[in-house]
């Protein structure tokens, strides 16, 4: 049984690719055969975040158009031999992706015994984003605790409940999860940032994880190693928790509170 999960958000720059890379890596770490697909035709980036940019020979569009086999195009991860990356085409136009073609690739992945397929959606609500969500069994909506990101997420939730294959078949939208990124508990406590509870209440879907703002995320993308590998960082640990919840484990939320200040800091601030 293959589960197809779309990582989407509407708004750009909120951490979809970072999240796709870490969730896919986390699932593979747990022994699941996993593929992660970049749907952002023309703006390929998942390969960089996964650290395999120099090994891309064939891409998603090559497979859809029959110029390469899926086997040729799947890039095996350096660290986990049950994790594969399918890169987006950097040169073609967006129309190169077709619904039939995407469906065929997903069927072939299922036939190959993949347990999870992570679809990294492009920003926006155009064709690439539509195709990334169309076949999904579940959705992870990545959101920053910030007004435009929250509003765009609600728009995406509307599309998930009407423009997917599940919705067309009348099966309902399937499980939807929120994943908050760039969360800053100190600013939340100061009333400068909406809390997890605020965002959850406005959007009305359950929270899969909260990734605290962390300098390790940039360090990870700089080096092409998904941040979940950085087990010493709170962002890496928060992603590992999210993966555990994704496979059904009951793990309590961490890193939601600001670190307690000592006596001196409380008296004189920082």
């Amino acid at each position: 049984m293959t589960e197809t999960i779309v990582i989407t958000s509407g708004k750009g720059g909120v951490g979809k690719t970072t999240t796709s890379a870490s969730l896919a890596t986390g699932l593979a770490q747990r022994g699941h055969k996993t593929a992660v697909i970049d749907f952002d035709v023309g703006l390929r980036n998942l390969d960089l975040i996964m650290g395999c940019e120099r090994r891309v020979v064939y891409d998603f569009v090559n497979v859809i158009q029959g110029e390469a086999s899926l086997k040729q195009a799947l890039i095996r991860d350096k660290r986990h031999d049950n994790l594969y990356v399918l890169a987006a085409s950097q040169t073609r136009d967006k129309d190169a992706l077709t619904q039939d073609g995407v469906g065929r690739v997903l069927d072939e992945l299922a036939a190959d015994g993949f347990e999870y397929v992570i679809c990294d959606s492009p920003a926006g609500i155009e064709k690439g984003a539509h195709l990334a969500m169309y076949f999904a069994d579940r959705a992870v909506v990545v959101v920053n605790p910030e007004v435009s990101s929250v509003r765009d997420s609600d728009r995406i939730l509307g599309l998930l409940s009407s423009k997917t294959r599940r919705a067309e078949k009348g099966e309902g939208p399937g499980p939807q999860h929120l994943l908050l990124t760039r969360y800053n508990p100190v600013r939340v406590e100061a009333g400068e940032m909406m809390s997890v509870g605020d965002v959850e209440e406005i959007l009305g879907i359950p929270v899969l994880g909260v990734i605290p703002e962390s300098e390790n995320v940039l360090a990870a993308s700089n080096s092409g190693v998904p941040v979940i590998h950085d087990a010493g960082s709170i962002a890496g640990q928060a992603y590992a928790d999210a993966v555990a919840r994704l496979v059904g484990e009951d793990v309590s939320m961490r890193f939601l509170d600001a670190p307690k200040k000592g006596f001196f800091k409380r008296m004189f601030g920082t």
């Binding site: 007004v147 929250v150 509003r151 400068e192 940032m193 406005i202």
Partner: peptide, 14 residues
């Protein structure tokens, strides 16, 4: 407390 302002604005528009 701008977080409260954000929350209320979003509630209405959403």
């Amino acid at each position: 407390n701008t977080a409260n302002i954000a929350r209320e604005r979003l509630r209405i528009i959403v």
